[in-house]
Design a binder for these strands. Sequence first.
DNA 1: CTGCCTGCAAACGATTTGCACCAGC
DNA 2: GCTGGTGCAAATCGTTTGCAGGCAG
Lengths: 154, 154
Amino acid sequence: MGSASLEERVKELEQVCRSRGLPLTIQRRAVFETILERDDHPSADQILEQIKERVPDISRTTVYRILDTFVQLGLITKICHPRSVARFEPRIQQHHHLICMHCEQIIDLEEDRLNGIAYPDVRRHDFQITDYHIHFRGICSGCRSRAGGAELPD
Amino acid sequence: MGSASLEERVKELEQVCRSRGLPLTIQRRAVFETILERDDHPSADQILEQIKERVPDISRTTVYRILDTFVQLGLITKICHPRSVARFEPRIQQHHHLICMHCEQIIDLEEDRLNGIAYPDVRRHDFQITDYHIHFRGICSGCRSRAGGAELPD
DNA sequence: CTGCCTGCAAACGATTTGCACCAGC
DNA sequence: GCTGGTGCAAATCGTTTGCAGGCAG
């Protein structure tokens, strides 16, 4: 789909670091590549686990710090919702999510139609809207079949 | 607007507790009334501070436990977004939020038009959508005037 | 070289849990 | 009276911070 290749995105990382005068360390490159390789929305600790395969001595602190830096730089997005720790995703273009209320799984939605919603009238709040994001909440297929609609182990 | 009165909502609490066999304690009533009285989106600790005025010996633990119970019962909603602790709101009907990316303030939106968005086609995910919620992100008037668009102390 | 980055360990803040006691129904 | 709720203190979990050395530019 419309997403850039891994290599293009790594180039983007290089450019962004260079333009800001930030050193492109082994750790930064590895965190970026690791998050790009996944098609889900991993937590900091999930990224840490996976990255240890290629940079075994990386510390948890560094992963947290790098993820935060990438969010500030606009390279990745941080997602947060109740009952779940912070998660990260490499996509920065506008898109929306399905969120399973049982297993907290997050699924990306591709529908372009959802990107064209007119902004609400916020003159009375004098608020300047930059963008928006829709969560569709519900139950994923796995949880539905596992539980038949009743409660789940968790 | 279309929101129920405080008394109606307290009745709702009584009914829900009775129907589930949950004791309606002083603390539960006080937490519910406190959150209803506010028109913002308080954190657990903000609720605790305010509730101490009427139930001085209530413990923080209890507030957390009660808020969690209310969320399970569908009486209130928990909201979470990056860079801010969990917040709660008494409104359970569908509505949407403006979120200031500088001060993390959350503002309720009333626009009905936003409630009629057609669900996306999720057949390939086999996901059952229950409802949705839109965050509009941007900058509130206070932060804009304080900072003129540049960065903020926080 | 110089400065930002990293790893370690300790601090931190929000939230949860174990347990003895107490209060609704 | 029984059941579940509450308060307290301690544990936990994710995340952040202080500091001494290391590496990219």
